[in-house]
Amino acid sequence: MPLRARGTGVGLADRLQAYLPRIVLSPTIAAAAVFIYGFILWTIWISMTNSGLLPRYELAGFVQYVKLFASDRWWVASRNLAVFGGLFVTFCIIFGLLLAILLDQRIRVEGALRTLYLYPMALSFIVTGTAWRWILNPGLGLERLVRQAGLESFTFDWLVNSKMSIYTVVIAGVWQSTGFVMALFLAGLRSIDDAVIRAAQVDGASLPRIYARIIVPTMRPVFFSAVIILTHIAIKSFDLVMVLTGGGPGYSSDLPATFMYTFAFTRNRLGFGAASAVMMFMAVMAIIIPYLYSELRVRRDG
């Protein structure tokens, strides 16, 4: 009798032990199911209703999307994202790669320089945006500096010029993220086998040629990662625009992220805001799912 009792006791403990990881993990699984997937579905639902100030849950089809695509402001925000995203990604990669290559030439104070290039990444976009807002200030900032230096007719009013305001976001964004891209490329450069380079040197190839023909092409995965990450940052960009231009003048520097915030939370057009959020979500997924797929596949193969 005692033996059997002991026997079932062990069996239960064993079974509990076997299920313990699942039990411990279950709160996270539940949280992800509800707060990620459930909430995404919820937002999609709201986007298909006539919700205004308060959510209403009778489905109304695609009216909000029809309104969204008819909205001039949405297209301004989308075009801005294309302009901002394109320039932001391009300049970050050019400057990041350049700095990485230059830093890779046995620089004596490399550590210190790297620290300087990368510190903006530790700061909030709100903090650095505040600084750029002041530097780009049309009255007292850069404009005054250049005028005092002798160029009396110099004007620099991009911050309040609705044709140029989105480019101030590019300037601040590139400044903030270049160091990070440099770090990615530097890590990539360091992982290249020196034997390949030495062999090319023995063959008499010049250093720029070695970089252009051998080193940079082998870093294709790093380029790929950098483009994905930067595009992802660009689509999510919100803080920088809010502090730098507030989306203005007018709505000339709106991005989808600020567009969504404005309509969902300050103008109380929930259905409309939700529709723009769903569009953002789909844009990100279109980029991320192939990326994740390729990353995970590579890992499994390797």
């Binding site: 997937y37 459930g38 937002t43 992802h232 969504m260 723009s276 959020a277 994740l292």
Partner: peptide, 21 residues
């Protein structure tokens, strides 16, 4: 599979969960 599904949570633009939250 659960891990991959969780990973998506790193990437979603948070705008898509703000209203329900």
């Amino acid at each position: 599979v659960i891990f991959s599904l969780l990973l998506v949570g790193c990437f979603i633009p948070f705008q898509v969960i703000l209203l329900p939250m």
